[in-house]
Write a protein that binds this DNA or RNA. Structure first.
Lengths: 191, 191
DNA sequence: CGCCAGGTTGAAGCGCTTCAACGTCTGTGG
DNA sequence: CCACAGACGTTGAAGCGCTTCAACCTGGCG
C-alpha cells in the first residue's frame, strides 16, 4: 500500500515495531502534486517533512529574480526545508514538482510528540539529522573545492537518472553555473 | 573548574541533572595543544568530539599540496570531523591549533553508551546534529549564492574576532579564494 | 643584520557571466 | 495538418573577476 515505501525507509534507520508503526501511520498524509505545483513557497514556515513515493521535485530559492536550485528529490527520498522546520521560522525555499508527485507528509507537532514519547523515534531524529549533515557536507566540499566541470562529472556519475529527467538549465543552477556555461562544459567533455 | 564551560554548553541543549553530569564528567579528557600541533590528521578515524575551552583551531584538508580551510573553531565551540566520527571511516581532515589550546574530549564509545542509556543524551545528539546541519546549510548557501566579496563582508561582520586572530591567507582559503584575491577585495572595499 | 612569514602589487591568462542571436523540438490552435 | 509560439539548448562576442606566477614590501625574530 501507499505507506509501504516510507515504512521501509524508516526501518533502515531504526527497528520499527508493529506498535510503533500503528501509532505513526494515522499521522501520515498522502498528497498528490501536479507538475509545476508548489509544496512550499518563500515565507512559509515549513510544517512537514515529506517523503517522496513517486515523482521528482526541486528545491530552490529566488534572488534578484533568478532561480537558484539547492537540491532535487525523487523516489524514496526525504525532504523538507529543514532549517525552517527546525527553527520554526519562515523559510526562503520554494519546493516545486518537476514531475507529477505522490508524497507522504508528517507534521511537526506529531514528530515532536513522537520524539518525546517514543525512544526509538528520538534516535531516528538523531540519525536523520546526522545523515542530512553528512549529505550536505559532501555538497559543501564539492562546491568549495571542485570546479564546475568536476561537479558536473560527479553529478552525472552519481545521479545519471537526474541527468535524464531534469532540464539542463536546472542542473546548471544546481551546479552553480549558468545554462550557457554548462552547455560549453558538456561540449568540452565530448572531445 | 575546567569542565564548567562544557557543562554550561550542554545545558543549553538539554537540562543536565547532577546525576547526568556526574555520570558524564569522568569520561571527559582535558587536552592541551600548542600552536601548530595537530589534533587529527588525514586518514585518522575521528574518535572524539572536542570542545574548545580556550584557543583557536583550524580544520582543513589538503589537495594538490594546497591547504583548504573548512572551518575555524574557538572558545565554547564544539568540533570534530563529524563525518568520520559518525561513519567510523578515515577522515580527510586535519585539525590544527592556530593558538595554544585547552580542549575537552569525549570519545565515541562513551557517547554511544550515553545515547542508549540516557534519554536526554539521545535528544542532545539529535539537537547537536540538527544544529550542525543548520550551520553547514548557511555556509553552503553562502558558497553557492554569494560572491567572494560578499562572503568576506559577512565573515567580517559575523566573526570580527577571527578577522583579528586568523592570518589573512587562512581566511582567504576559508572563503574559497587565493590570498591575492582577498587582498584585492579588501583594497576594493576601502574606497 | 638578515631571514622568513605574511601581505601587497603587477601582468597575463582563463573560465566564468552576460547579452544577443539563432537552432530545435513539442504542443496547440486556426 | 500545418504554422506558429514557447521552452530549451547552443553558439558567439565582450567583459570581468578570479587564478597564477613573480616581484617586492613589511615586521618580527634568531
Amino acid at each position: 500500500m501507499v505507506f509501504d515505501q516510507i515504512k521501509k525507509y524508516y526501518s533502515n534507520f531504526i527497528p520499527m515495531s508493529d506498535d510503533d508503526w500503528n501509532l505513526l501511520k494515522p499521522a501520515l498524509r498522502l498528497v498528490h502534486l501536479k507538475k509545476g505545483e508548489k509544496l512550499q513557497s518563500e515565507g512559509d514556515i515549513c510544517n512537514d517533512v515529506t517523503f517522496c513515493n513517486k515523482g521528482l521535485l526541486k528545491c530552490y530559492h529566488i534572488k534578484d529574480d533568478k532561480e537558484y536550485v539547492e537540491a532535487f528529490f525523487t523516489e524514496n527520498e526525504y525532504l523538507s526545508d529543514y532549517t525552517s522546520f527546525l527553527l520554526r521560522i519562515p523559510g526562503k525555499l520554494y519546493i516545486e514538482a518537476i514531475e507529477d508527485c505522490e508524497l507522504v507528509l508528517l507534521d511537526y507537532d506529531t514528530i515532536q510528540t513522537f520524539y518525546s514519547r517514543v525512544d526509538n523515534f528520538q534516535k531516528f531524529g538523531r540519525l536523520m539529522a546526522e545523515f542530512l549533515f553528512i549529505q550536505i557536507s559532501l555538497r559543501n566540499n564539492s562546491l568549495l573545492f571542485e570546479s564546475p566541470e568536476k561537479r558536473y562529472i560527479n553529478f552525472s556519475k552519481n545521479r545519471p537518472d537526474l541527468i535524464q529527467r531534469v532540464p539542463q538549465y536546472m542542473i546548471a543552477s544546481y551546479l552553480g553555473v549558468t545554462p550557457e556555461a554548462l552547455s560549453r562544459i558538456r561540449k568540452r567533455l565530448l572531445s
